[in-house]
Computed example of a mutant assay.
Amino acid sequence: MTEWDEIDRALCRALAADASQSAASLGAQVGLSQPAAWRRIRRLRDAGILSGTRLALDAQALGFGVTVFLGIKLATKGRVSLEDFERAVTAIPEVQLVELVLGLYDYRLRVVARDLADFERVLRRRIMTLPGVGNVEANVLLSEERRPGPM
C-alpha cells in the first residue's frame, strides 16, 4: 500500500468498533460513497492492514468472572522446552492469550476462570504441570477500562 491517510485511519477505527458494518454505512461515516469505501477496504485487506473478522465475547456474561495475567519463567531454556511449553499451554481452554516476552518472565498468559477456586484448580492441575514451568507470578484483573484498538 502506498499511502495511509486520514480516511484509511477513520475506516479502521470504524471497523474496529463494529466489523459487521456495510461499506455503505462505513462510507457515510467517513464521507465516501459505498463503492469508494468498498475499494478502500479491499485495498486495506490486500495490503494486509485488515485481516480477518473478530467477534468479542463477554467473558463475564459467559460465566467467567475472573481474569488473571500470569508471568511464567521457564526453569529450563532451549528450543525444545519453548516448543513443548507452547504446545501444551495452547491446549488449555482457559488460557486466552500466550505471549513470548522479554524481561523478568518468558511468557505472559491471560487466563479466565469462573471464580478464584476455579482459577486455583486451573493453576494447580494444568498450568503448574506444564513442561518447563519454573516461577509463576499472578496478577488478577480488577477492571478493564479500555480495550486496545488497531492504532
Rank of each mutant, 00 (worst) to 15 (best):
M1C: 05
E3M: 08
W4A: 06
W4F: 14
A10F: 02
L11H: 03
L11M: 06
C12K: 14
A14R: 07
L15I: 12
D18E: 10
A19M: 07
Q21I: 14
Q21R: 15
S22I: 07
A23K: 06
A23I: 11
A24P: 04
S25V: 14
L32M: 10
Q34A: 12
Q34W: 03
A36I: 11
A36L: 10
A37K: 03
A37H: 00
A37Q: 04
W38C: 14
W38Y: 15
R40L: 01
R40K: 12
L44R: 04
L44Y: 04
A47Y: 02
A47R: 01
G48L: 04
I49H: 01
I49Y: 06
L50H: 05
L50Q: 06
S51H: 13
G52S: 00
G52V: 10
R54C: 03
A56S: 13
A56G: 07
L57M: 10
A59V: 08
F64S: 01
V66H: 01
V68E: 05
V68P: 04
F69I: 15
L70Y: 08
K73D: 13
T76I: 11
T76H: 09
T76P: 00
K77H: 15
K77E: 11
G78W: 01
R79P: 07
V80W: 11
S81K: 12
S81H: 12
D84F: 05
D84I: 00
R87Q: 10
R87K: 14
V89C: 03
A91E: 10
A91S: 10
P93K: 08
P93R: 10
P93H: 08
P93D: 10
E94V: 06
L97N: 05
L97K: 10
L97M: 11
E99Q: 15
L100F: 12
L100H: 15
L102N: 14
L104R: 15
D106C: 01
D106T: 07
R108P: 00
L109Q: 05
L109P: 00
R110Q: 13
R110A: 13
V111I: 15
V111E: 02
A113G: 05
A113H: 00
R114V: 10
R114L: 04
L116V: 05
L116D: 10
R125D: 14
R126Y: 05
I127E: 01
M128D: 03
M128L: 12
M128G: 07
M128W: 08
T129F: 06
L130D: 05
P131V: 03
P131E: 01
G132V: 08
G132Y: 01
G132T: 10
V133S: 00
G134A: 03
G134H: 05
V136E: 06
A138C: 07
N139W: 09
V140M: 07
L141A: 14
E144A: 09
G149M: 08
P150R: 12
M151V: 15
